[in-house]
Amino acid sequence: MKKNIPLAIVIILGFIFVGWTFIPAKWMQDDFYTAFLEFTKTMSPFAVFLGIYSLVSMHYNRIRRKVPKWGYSYVTLTGLVVTATLGFVYGTQAGTPVQWIFRNFMMPISATMFSLLAFYMATAAYKSFRARSIEATVLLVAAIIIMLGQVPLGMAISRSWPINILDISQWIMDVPNLASKRGILLGVGLGSVATSLKILLGIERTYLGGGD
């Protein structure tokens, strides 16, 4: 029973989605589906509560148990309380403290995290592009051509060649790259249809919480 009712809900709602896909009529698209969608919105507030509860309880435990670097948990909890309080008191419009925090803390910190990508990409490229096998060599050569196509040096080199390096890099992107991408996407599409079908038919039930 604990599993059957949720399963029934999933299956019924799943078939409604199927109907929504194939039936363009107004009764399905507007009257039924749109009204239905409103319900899903009610789920979020409860989940937010759960999320906050989880965050607080985890960090509270960390502080209580004095696990290594527990001091940072204070930072997290302070951030949560301060931002939320400021938001409730002053609102979230432009010019309020919340926006100030967002612009002066969130944005630079996020940008810093994102800029790490440049460094990681460099090391990743350095480590992995080795001509270990024929496939790896192909990958290596393609990578160098594409990168050369992005910088003036590549253009300078290719001016003296009969074939433009930009054309080659474009060809690599358009033909082999696109072909493999499509192959993967085809598999992904089919896999996701299969997974959806498994859920719709009740074969796959992990999402209901463990067990098979």
């Binding site: 789920m43 989940a47 759960l50 999320g51 999402y207 209901l208 919480g209």
Partner: peptide
Amino acid sequence: FILMPIAQEI
């Protein structure tokens, strides 16, 4: 946060 309780249950 919707995923969290489900993952917990799993």
